[in-house]
Amino acid sequence: MNDSTSTTSAALDSLRRHINSRLIGQSQVVDQVLIAMLAGGHVLIEGVPGLGKTLLVQALAAGIGGKFKRIQFTPDLMPGDVTGHVMFDMSQGKFVLKHGPVFTNLLLADEINRAPAKTQAALLEVMQEQQVTLDGKSMEVGKPFMVLATQNPIEQEGTYALPEAELDRFIIKINIDYPQAQDEVLIATRYALQSFGGDQGDTRQLLDVESAQQQCAAIEVDDKVAAYAVDLVRATRGSTLLRHGAGPRASIALLRCAKALALINGAGFITPDDVKAMVLPVLRHRVILAPEVEIDGLGVDQVLANLLEKVDAPRS
């Protein structure tokens, strides 16, 4: 471990502690969001409302010294409401540009599946290109730029499911669940007398994200570990338990996330354990279960765990 890696790892640790001190009982979610951020990807979070997703993004924005905006997706939300638009200003007698909420560092796209496909596509284009074209001009969004989109697993009436090709744009999908009982007691006692997000806590910038992302990219990858990651992704394509396997983008995402995990752990290289640890969050939204498996009541995570058992880990 060289000095810069250990410095970044320490900064990441303090950022992690800062977020965990505000978002109680979701340390795994915090780690995965940090991994996605270091890997330069976007996150899809699935969970019921009220689990602190906004608080997580607020705390993260504060920790990296970035801006934070939020869009509540609704069926009548238009693409212009996301990216911005050009309008005629009567007082000035000319067209003026109104930037949309995507011009930020961290964007919380709440309940993304409530908006129609056109609006979703506008956001997904920004996620891919990291720029917006308005009035014929291309404008870059903030750096770093990260979208944290949420989906509600219940109340599916009146929603527009994200197509598989668009889901692939999210580097990981996180399933956020209720906190443990003792954590919930702590949350209840702490926030009983104050509003959520009222206490901003430590607002110092704890991490230089761009520098950390560069270090993450420089993490060493052995050929055998890379082959292992590809083998894991390819195993999803040949499985009879899955109707649709993951594509090559998944292999890239898997290695990038494994690198981020290695950086968080303070290592300068990735191991098969790092790859294996990231399989579920990276692949769970990129595969589709076979109908008979769904009927049997098996979930994606169970099927992927089963596949993990069938792929030999590298050793020599």
Binding site: T271, P272, D273, K276, L308, E309, V311, D312, A313, R315
Partner: peptide, 9 residues
């Protein structure tokens, strides 16, 4: 040990 086990496992 199984073939799918990593070193940490």
């Amino acid at each position: 040990f199984r073939a799918s086990h990593t070193e940490a496992e």
